[in-house]
Write a protein that binds this DNA or RNA. Structure first.
Lengths: 251, 251
DNA sequence: GCCTCTTCTCGTACGGTGTTCGATTTCACT
DNA sequence: AGTGAAATCGAACACCGTACGAGAAGAGGC
């Protein structure tokens, strides 16, 4: 038999006889603040310790590596996503709300995106989110493996859609320019970079004048609708004959 | 007017009177090898220089920051994605091939995923890829902004779907265990982590026995089909009446 | 051949990083 | 008050990205 991998989630959070000055909760809260305020690169153990009025190495009593801090903080982000109840709003509405909720949470914590592709999300909040999504798609009429397929398809789309948005947003922040200033500067940069692709430039110019954030939201919604519509197609294919069968399949 | 942002792509690649020992091309090639062999953390300017038989700081003549190296290497990955021609295979087939091509390229270079969400992809290969995808969806019958929406929806799904796969794969590699060993170990870990979510555990157990890679591929295909089916729905909604109108719209 | 100017390489150094380890403090409980 | 565990901390190690200025290498004119 194999011993379980040790992970933040399988190990107990260090006794907590009392909470003298440090604790897991305080650490993740401080880390979250630091990350939100100054981004991923700003999070160092020394700075994190300083923010808690503690030495850098004191953290290592409560946490094994820096990675564990990140894992804990990541799960905190998942915890911020509101979980709609498919029973009351219907599965499609629930899926849409869920997608937008995740999008919003990740916008609030842009540093989280690169972390997702680095370590698997198996914290309690991620799991809660996962089971709730399965419930949504069960309500829709999916069964067996398709439950997972549908869940992860939705999750995949949302994550993938947000990644480039975050990329732009962080380069904006790093450049120190305002959104409009950068739009102007970018106009020239893209013009130059795309000199071999005139039709791409043409498409790009179509964007100018529109509010970037609005355009992105529309784009997000477009893909989301497509994905859900495709799922509906799938459901109808699998159970085309009796529409009330789907309603009673639940349980 | 705004001056263009300076970026690797707008700046010329340093004279190249002759190529004494270093050049951009050699640097990106060496970086790619290093990244593929040992991962993102292994790429340091010192090690990269050493691999080229050069000092670490010599690189800074050809490249402004480490970030530029990463940007160049990222575009190299985009360059590996085969670009299907929608004229010959049809838009759906082209989209599917494209998706699988990107998936494969990213599997070969797992370190690339976290980079995507950090810096926008505006290298020449990324642009070539982007215009080709627009062509695919133009062939499908999309017009105007929907061209971009559809393109980025597909791209988003692929990226988002791959991210968690990479996450698992890299933790497997880091752990040093084989895929089966880790499956066994993970079984226990998940069992413990999911103790509050028995139905999730039940779903997880359904996986055991199946080949993980196959399951992932099926899952990937599921979402991809849903997305494309949803796009078809969209196309039919926008031009429901005359099916030959769609065929002639192209040009 | 020699000089000069540009192109390119490199050693050194600075301030920062994650983490180890042993000494030290703090604290609850007898 | 004393003791043992829990928690904190300082110093140190190896490594990182990069600024800077000294130097090597090569081309072109004389």
């Amino acid at each position: 038999m194999q011993q379980p991998l040790d992970s933040v989630w399988t190990r107990q959070p260090r006794a907590s006889k009392s909470s003298p000055t440090l604790s897991r909760g305080q650490i993740v809260r401080a880390a979250l603040e630091l990350l939100d305020a100054e981004g991923l690169d700003a999070l160092s153990m020394r700075r994190l310790g300083a923010r808690l009025g503690a030495g850098a190495t004191s953290l290592y009593w409560h946490v094994a590596h820096k990675d564990e801090v990140l894992e804990l903080v990541m799960d905190e982000v998942y915890g911020e996503v509101p979980l709609p109840d498919p029973e009351t709003v219907g599965w499609q509405d629930a899926a849409v709300r869920f997608a937008y909720g995740l999008r919003e949470a990740l916008f609030k914590h842009p540093w989280a995106i690169p972390l997702i592709s680095t370590r698997p999300s198996i914290g309690p909040n991620a799991m809660r989110l996962s089971t709730r999504m399965a419930a949504v798609f069960e309500q829709a009429g999916f069964t067996g493996m398709s439950l997972d397929y549908a869940s992860s398809a939705l999750l995949s789309y949302v994550l993938g859609a947000i990644a480039p948005e975050i990329a732009w947003r962080t380069t904006i922040d790093r450049s120190g320019l305002s959104s409009e200033e950068l739009a102007a500067a970018m106009h020239q940069t893209v013009r130059q970079a795309a000199r071999d692709h005139p039709e791409l430039l043409e498409r790009y110019e179509r964007y100018t004048g529109h509010d970037v954030d609005v355009t992105r939201a529309i784009s997000f919604d477009f893909g989301l609708t497509c994905l859900l519509d495709g799922m509906k197609v799938r459901l109808e294919q699998d159970a085309p004959a009796t529409p009330e069968a789907r309603r009673t399949r639940r349980t």
